[in-house]
Design a protein around this nucleic acid. Sequence first.
DNA 1: CACAAACCTTGAACATTGTTCAATAAATAT
DNA 2: ATATTTATTGAACAATGTTCAAGGTTTGTG
Lengths: 181, 181
Amino acid sequence: MIAARGLAGLKTRDLAREIGCANGAVYNLVTDVDELVLRVGSRTLLRLDEALSAAVSAGEPSPREALVRIAIAYCDFAAENLQLWRALFEHRMAADKPLPDWSVNDQMQLFRHIYQPLAALFPERSPEELGITARSLFSAVHGMVTLGLEQKLVAVPLPALRKEIATLVRAMIDGLIAQAA
Amino acid sequence: MIAARGLAGLKTRDLAREIGCANGAVYNLVTDVDELVLRVGSRTLLRLDEALSAAVSAGEPSPREALVRIAIAYCDFAAENLQLWRALFEHRMAADKPLPDWSVNDQMQLFRHIYQPLAALFPERSPEELGITARSLFSAVHGMVTLGLEQKLVAVPLPALRKEIATLVRAMIDGLIAQAA
DNA sequence: CACAAACCTTGAACATTGTTCAATAAATAT
DNA sequence: ATATTTATTGAACAATGTTCAAGGTTTGTG
């Protein structure tokens, strides 16, 4: 239902009707809609993880091109799973209810893909530094995808967005290498 | 109320109590909560615009350093106006209700700040190309700020975030210049 | 099989919220 | 002073997440 109608289109009554039970029965499967959304998010993250892995599995891309491929794969995944991907970031827990551990853990796994090529490019950096750089790179690409797929402003055609992402990822890497030298 | 309790903490009844009227009277000032949020967003964008202008007004920074200053100013503004800034991006209209023109117009103004230094750095690029690059740069920085200020994952200390942003903005610019050469 | 304990399902009920609207009051024009 | 327009009120409505007592179903045990 999130995939079809977006996070805001997920209603417990509709959901109950669709799976054929009373609305109250939903709460036997899940304590909350919060939990429901996080469980869906968990699956989405798993599929995203696979998509990113697949992106670098063909051929032997250089670290630089591996990072470009990962970024493009992230963009493509978001475009192809727009509502599910958005749900990952749109969803907010109530301020007093923290994220469960398993959900936090899910999210951490993503940086792994970026970390490896980065480590190859910057062998002199410490794991902490690499972690920070990985998060920065991810965040930058995430921002481009987020605003690029947003219909709110101008609709960017997907091929143009992919090209822009590739350009900027290469620029970031080249710039970081130049700074390190 | 958005500033104090976040977008999700804005309730028409609380608002009516606070301004001293019946809950129905809110709809004499505004047709919707949507409109209310957009009007607040308009003010926020105006203040953000001022903050970005102020960032480059002191001294005569090079285009490269102007872009760094703008990015840092964006980060600082978001940190200091966290809830109001988040409301700009968290808010979604219903799918069938498009944004009013004045609101769309508001958002376009932001790229102006980035456009000027970029034009100085890349005089051979067309206005369209510059517009695209400006949006890419903005999106990348926006992503870093968004995920950096999110408490969801690891809390990043603000000084570290500022430093990371400066590093990556310089890297992006240097990388883009190297590509152009 | 008989019985009990655990579990599941149901649908009504509740609380919260955005929104509308008929009634009423206030302001303004004539 | 009176009529007309405008603003305000607070009750009512609809949508929605959540709870819960009542009743049904499954499962374990002698």
